[in-house]
């Protein structure tokens, strides 16, 4: 099939970007979206033009590297899918596509479709861990964990850190990402000890990174390739207020 692509090109973080048009022919329905861009890039290189830069790595939807919006949808319109697993059979012959980087103040564009998502690392750095040193652990089965809690913690921990939640949110909020990690750890007995400090530190780091706040559009949940629930945001709000108000008392 044939497609008309409008791809965001931007030389670097300071230069202004613009859409560039490409007509791609011979697109196979079995190609992944990124393979379609690979083919375009091979042609560009052969013509001596710079290929479209985009982040990608595992191409099986788990590393969280790939990040672009197709027609305004982060990772494309298909639910629960990263753009590396989006296949061209989801599109129609002759369709015109708008391919853009993830848009948010917290994710400045580096080049073309590549954005700087290091703010997420700084949020994790601020408290997204259990302070245990190697070798300190007791036997793994010494603390039983309710299966339901372990399962919900796993639901939250499934986050791949791609940033689609931020990209989809009309407010550029990172609350789904932040709340997923806070809940993953707060739900487990190992993470309970530092619950208050973690929640406060991560929420405030998130705010300091310039992300917006949730006004309950629920766009993040539907864009999330792992379908992480917005319930976690609600839990985070509760945990934050509690920690802030009573945290010093160790409640």
């Amino acid at each position: 099939m044939k497609l008309k692509l409008n791809v965001w090109r931007q030389k670097d973080s300071v230069t202004e970007g613009a859409f560039e048009n490409f007509n791609v022919n011979d697109v196979s329905e079995h190609m992944s979206f990124l393979e379609m861009l690979d083919v375009l890039n091979e042609d560009l290189i052969t013509d001596g033009k710079e290929p479209v830069a985009f982040d990608h790595d595992c191409r099986e939807g788990i590393c969280g590297s790939c990040a672009m919006s197709v027609n305004g949808y982060p990772h494309g319109h298909r639910k629960g899918t990263t753009v590396c697993q989006l296949h061209m059979r989801e599109f129609n012959d002759g369709e015109e596509l708008w391919i853009e980087p993830f848009r948010a103040k917290g994710f400045p564009v580096i080049k073309d479709l590549v954005t700087d998502r290091s703010a997420f690392d700084r949020i994790i750095e601020s408290g997204g861990y259990v302070s245990v040193r190697t070798g300190q652990a007791q036997d793994a089965n010494s603390i039983p964990i309710r299966k339901e809690n372990a399962d919900v913690a796993m639901d939250a921990a499934a986050c791949i850190g791609c940033g689609a939640c931020v990209a989809a949110c009309p407010n550029g909020a990172a609350m789904l990402f932040t709340s997923a990690k806070i809940n993953h750890l707060n739900l487990l007995p190992q993470g309970q000890v530092e619950k208050n400090e973690r929640t406060i530190a991560m929420v405030e780091q998130m705010q300091n990174e310039g992300f917006g706040s949730c006004t309950n559009h629920y766009e993040c949940e539907s864009a999330c390739p792992k379908s992480i629930s917005i319930n976690f945001i609600s839990d985070m709000n509760k945990a934050y207020i509690k920690s802030k108000a009573f945290g010093k008392a160790g409640i």
Binding site: Y129, V130, T134, A137, Q138, A140, I143, R146, A150, A157
Partner: peptide, 15 residues
């Protein structure tokens, strides 16, 4: 070590 870090391994109903 991993359990202490909060890795959510699969569990049985007994925890």
């Amino acid at each position: 070590q991993c359990v202490a870090q909060g890795v959510p391994f699969a569990r049985e109903y007994g925890g």
